[in-house]
Design a protein around this nucleic acid. Sequence first.
DNA 1: TATGAATGAGTTTTCATTCAT
DNA 2: GATGAATGAAAACTCATTCAT
Lengths: 217, 217, 217, 217
Amino acid sequence: MTVDTAISSPRWTRRKDARPAEILDAALELFVQQGFAKTRIEDIAQRAGVTGGAIYRYFPNKDALLEGLIRDSLLADLDAMSAKLRQREGKVSDMIADALWGWWQTFGGGKLSGLCKLMVAEGDNFPALREFYFEQAIEERCGRLIDFLLRKGIAQGEFYVIDVDYTVKIIRSSMLMTQIWKNSFAHSEREALDMRRYFNAYAELLLAGLKQKEPQS
Amino acid sequence: MTVDTAISSPRWTRRKDARPAEILDAALELFVQQGFAKTRIEDIAQRAGVTGGAIYRYFPNKDALLEGLIRDSLLADLDAMSAKLRQREGKVSDMIADALWGWWQTFGGGKLSGLCKLMVAEGDNFPALREFYFEQAIEERCGRLIDFLLRKGIAQGEFYVIDVDYTVKIIRSSMLMTQIWKNSFAHSEREALDMRRYFNAYAELLLAGLKQKEPQS
Amino acid sequence: MTVDTAISSPRWTRRKDARPAEILDAALELFVQQGFAKTRIEDIAQRAGVTGGAIYRYFPNKDALLEGLIRDSLLADLDAMSAKLRQREGKVSDMIADALWGWWQTFGGGKLSGLCKLMVAEGDNFPALREFYFEQAIEERCGRLIDFLLRKGIAQGEFYVIDVDYTVKIIRSSMLMTQIWKNSFAHSEREALDMRRYFNAYAELLLAGLKQKEPQS
Amino acid sequence: MTVDTAISSPRWTRRKDARPAEILDAALELFVQQGFAKTRIEDIAQRAGVTGGAIYRYFPNKDALLEGLIRDSLLADLDAMSAKLRQREGKVSDMIADALWGWWQTFGGGKLSGLCKLMVAEGDNFPALREFYFEQAIEERCGRLIDFLLRKGIAQGEFYVIDVDYTVKIIRSSMLMTQIWKNSFAHSEREALDMRRYFNAYAELLLAGLKQKEPQS
DNA sequence: TATGAATGAGTTTTCATTCAT
DNA sequence: GATGAATGAAAACTCATTCAT
């Protein structure tokens, strides 16, 4: 109003640019925990340090939050690893255990792992998003990584796999399930898993399976 | 039946005994598809062939529908198989493929498979139910079946497993994931799986892994 | 259906004529306690030993229960006393204490006393009934009794009252209030009154007031 | 104010501070008139100039409206008078008529008089509130005022009362009944009372009763 | 820009009343 | 006659969204 206000610092200068990310962060946690429908805009706002109305300055509606989560947050975190792995040399058998555990540490076990549970839960209500998530997260990343390693191992004579395509799907499933478990049943303390041990046992089992010489009856 | 009854059909018919099951059936389908919160009582009622109010004669509130689904519907369908499998004789290697595919056909791929997705999605909102589901469905059935076969195979000298407990968890996870997949991503036609082929490939991989002679580094 | 049923006693012969009264009895208690709107037909039925639907054989709807209570139950109980009192001879001063206590014992303190509270509570929603109750119960009975005694006492030179009409209203009010109190605040144990003592003290105070020789300033 | 604002009136205006009182005002009127159960939130809202949902910003549920009425509104209006009366000097006989009429004018006949009827009607459904009302409104105020005047009159030799405690209850009852009457039967135009005349006659009768020289048999 | 009061379109739940049995 | 399953019309409460401040 008065000229004075031009001098004193405005009330809400607080990192204007960080807001959308903060809001999505809050939304992610709550959506994953309670589900999309049960989560209230007001709760997201509070966790993000703003009030309900403010959210609408950055997102046109509630659906857009979920969309933002999938389309924007997801892809940003998704590229580093797969690139990294393709460059490696050496025995694929040795790479696989590392690759799986590395995947868990950089991505699978992180915050965005919740998106997998979220898409399982809400996918039917947002088919376009599910499609997108499936393509980008499941096929393009998980799947392609496995596919790459598997075929390399076969080419190098290390692995003997009959149905390569479906074996990829099987391994991919295991990876997804660790994300889902972490965000659902693992919340019951009785069932938290020792993930290091889990991945050790998994690599053990998987590698032995891949190295088989004679097909099973 | 008689000509008289054809004059005007009654506004409703009395179906006391069948109603609860019909209602739970409808609820199951909708809860699994849309999630608990998004599903309207009125929609469940309509699919069950009644009006909203009628549901409250059989269930005190919406939560009770979910509870009925988990506590009543689940257990009813859960006993036949595990008993059946324990009686078998012969090589465990031969049993495992049968057991997994049998599980999928009698239970894993049936309607109630949706409960797994449902508990993943809503577990945080109904911790007591999740606990119950985990104990009864995951541990007591899936887990124990695997545990039984695995230890039997080891005892008979067919399998060589280092970390038995976690290997059980790993295999159990795969089974759960087929249920989850069927009720989520598989809805996108691009990703429907050929389950026969999937289980074949899985048995292949798994058995080879279990039969390993030398532990991996 | 068959001829046999004509011999065996029918299922519901139970005093067909008593039903309406039993239902009204149940309704009275619940209406007075919980109010008209809060009381459910089903609860009335249960207390009367029937099921909800049966009530509609005797009363067309919920309102009719209240109407039956006021119009039928009330008047039946209302005539004996006032007639009784008018016949007495002797000093009115001696009669008044007896009359009040007698009123309390035969009517004021009985079950139907609840009607007074009920009409206070629901009168605005049933103006015709309130009018009826006011005329029949308050004016015609309470009021007329007091009026009769008061004027008789004045005529006999025992009482000196300036504003007879309003003095009647005042005394009448006291009587109504005992009924209301009994059905409301008296339910809190701390405030149950010793009604014998109450009426003693009241007669004391009232008679002294009526016998005054000199008007107050 | 300015010409600009006249163009189109806003859908609503912000009245944060006034709202709770406005809502309680509306609720009081409707609760007293129709009873708690019969009164719809929407009606209260409309009378308060808002929509139904807005009420829930200030009160968590319908019960809280009643509670707010009793616990907040009541006490605010209750202190002035009793303090005022205790300070007076002179003959108690002269004070009593004034006290009663003063009570009626400042409190007994005001809007909040409806609370008395309301607690009579709904007390059984809200026992804690009834208790509170009884203690604060009936005993602490009405009762104590009467008690004080009565004992003072006795001490000064003006009154001769045998059972002081119950005489207090009797007079207290009369006061309550005026409130109840005003909010129930008085609504029927035939029975509106001339309250000035009523209190005159009452003071007349009461004082004469209190001044009695010889106890009645 | 941010706030948070207010709206209004739902959704669950209740219950008087009807009616098939 | 009586039952109680079913209806359908409320009514309390919730919450995404808007908008005055």
